[in-house]
């Protein structure tokens, strides 16, 4: 048993040394410590908004049983250049102009899936927080955004 414990120690030590060296020279190296609480999805979690990745967004998009409404928080120009089919454009920057549409959207009780361009943009989070404050309960944030949707072959409407 003592021999095995010693060998376990050797493996743990070798792994420590290799991981240190590898991360120091890795072309895609990451910092040893990073602030995760600044990430959009961390803020969403703090605000009680459920976050979903591309795989789940695709499932919901294809689901016929539980239709959901995608809400695009990007600018009108970005929306017109390409968006998830059937998505509604509610740019966070011009939210006030869309109040009547938002009211009926919330009243419909349908699940709302809010997104913006990518994982770093926070327009979708800000819009989701506004919708939540206006009474939307069935609401999720699609975190990977339109960029990843397009990259992984999601259907795009123009």
């Amino acid at each position: 048993m003592k021999t095995i414990l010693k060998q376990i120690g050797i493996i743990l030590l070798i792994s420590g040394v290799v991981s240190f060296l590898a991360n120091s020279v890795h072309p895609r190296k990451i910092p040893w410590v990073q602030s995760w609480s600044n990430q959009v999805e961390a803020k969403a979690k703090q605000n009680g908004i459920k976050v979903i990745p591309l795989s789940v967004a695709l499932q919901k998009f294809q689901s016929l049983e539980e239709p959901a409404t995608f809400v695009d928080a990007r600018s009108v120009d970005e929306f017109e250049a390409g968006h998830i089919p059937g998505a509604l454009s509610i740019p966070f920057q011009s939210l006030e102009e869309e109040f009547p549409m938002i009211g009926s959207l919330i009243d419909s009780g349908q699940e709302l899936i809010v997104y913006c361009q990518n994982r770093e943009c926070d327009d979708s989070l800000l819009l989701a927080m506004e919708l939540q404050a206006m009474g939307a309960e069935n609401l999720v944030l699609y975190i990977d955004g339109f960029e990843v949707w397009q990259k992984y072959g999601g259907v795009v409407e123009q």
């Binding site: 743990l12 792994s15 420590g16 990451i30 990073q34």
Partner: peptide, 11 residues
């Protein structure tokens, strides 16, 4: 988070 991710992948 990052230290664990770097270490466990090599372990």
């Amino acid at each position: 988070v990052n230290i664990s991710a770097i270490y466990f992948q090599w372990l």
